[in-house]
Simulated scan of single mutants.
Amino acid sequence: MSMSIEQEIEALNEVFGIPGVVEISAGNGGLSRVRITSPAAEAEIYLHGAQVTAWKPEGEEEVIFVSEKSTWVDGKAIRGGIPVCFPWFRDKVDDPKAPSHGFVRTKEWELFSVAQMDEDIIVTLTTTGDDASWKWWPYEVRAALRVTVGKELRLELTAANTGDTAFTFEEALHTYYRVGDAEKVSVLGLDGITYFDNMDGNREKVQHGDVHLSTGTDNAYQYTEAALTLIDPQLKRRIEIEKKNSSSTVVWNPWAQGAAKLADLGDEEWREMTCVEGGNLRVGAVKLGPGEQHTFEVTMRVLPA
């Protein structure tokens, strides 16, 4: 006899809960989430998609944006937070019917471990391919996301080839940063970098100066592992973003025109968000042979503007 959601959450708390610091509870839509309240930060991670939906370092405002119109349903993506895009990015090139951004962001991951290290809380979630995903991507893979919550937020995504066939994949941590006004933010660290402009037929272009948003933007920057800074004059802060083993950076905002086409994003919510995403895509796609694994990570911290 299968357990109810309430029984599952109670069982997870018995194994992984840390009184007063880490609690597993029912979140929006009844979906299971890990809630962290430590002296260093507050955060929230849904098992659905292994998706971080909140991070608030001590003394700071909320860093992560989530749409008020997001759906919270098994099998559908959460709009906002930090979706895990894997094993492809955007539409699957050889199958337009496959789910956008891969299949792991719309399934429930397994809570693997929770640890406390000084002021940091480390949460690891895992998932594998299954009958539902093999029709889209017929390879044996184990993905693990290790989230370190503290004064900094670090996400480490590991893909392991557990089968006997090599495969190539794309990946991204599609971070929605909460901003005061998207028209006033700037992204530093991409000057001189070549990118593909998805708003202009993926034409190859070169970034000149800092990135300033003035219209719908969907740029995939290539061959760049440089650190990035998101300057937010409205909220009087800057967010520093470091990457490791990540050769791609995506900057995205749908603007008013794009937001109007998204049922799970309010018409004016584009102003409150800017996505700056580390990953490996297009020319940066990763090839893994049998028994091999690959880890990339993104670390973010908040500083005064």
Rank of each mutant, 00 (worst) to 15 (best):
E68A: 10
F112D: 09
M199H: 09
A159G: 04
G216F: 01
I5D: 14
E277C: 04
L230Y: 09
P39A: 10
E44Y: 06
S246H: 04
A305N: 11
Y139D: 05
E42Y: 04
L281H: 10
S4I: 04
A166Q: 15
R90Q: 14
Y46A: 07
E268T: 15
T217L: 09
G180T: 03
K287L: 09
A26M: 06
E60G: 05
L281A: 11
T229C: 07
A159L: 06
V73I: 13
M273T: 06
L157P: 01
G180S: 09
L188P: 02
V73T: 15
V211F: 04
T53D: 03
G278Y: 01
G80E: 03
S133C: 03
T37S: 14
E110H: 12
W255G: 11
E171I: 02
G209D: 10
K243C: 02
F65K: 00
R203A: 14
A77C: 07
Y223I: 01
K205P: 07
F65Q: 01
V179D: 11
D164I: 07
A305H: 10
G189L: 02
K135C: 10
A259S: 15
D264A: 04
W137H: 08
S70D: 02
A115S: 13
G102V: 00
V206M: 14
R178I: 01
N198D: 14
V149D: 01
L262E: 07
E110R: 12
Q207C: 07
Y176Q: 00
G279H: 02
W137G: 03
A172T: 01
A263M: 07
S248P: 08
V187S: 01
I5T: 14
E8P: 04
S247G: 14
K184F: 11
R105T: 01
G17T: 10
R271S: 12
L190G: 00
T224Y: 08
F112A: 10
E156T: 08
Q222A: 08
H208P: 04
E108Q: 13
S2G: 07
R178C: 11
V34S: 03
G17Q: 07
E119Q: 11
V22Y: 03
T168L: 10
N28T: 11
L188E: 15
V185M: 10
F296D: 00
E6Q: 15
H174W: 04
C85S: 07
G216P: 05
D95I: 09
Q293T: 11
L111H: 06
R178K: 15
E61G: 15
F65Y: 13
E10D: 15
R33V: 12
T148C: 04
F196V: 00
K243L: 08
M117T: 06
V283N: 15
Q7W: 09
V251D: 02
N28S: 13
D267I: 14
S133M: 00
L145H: 01
L303T: 13
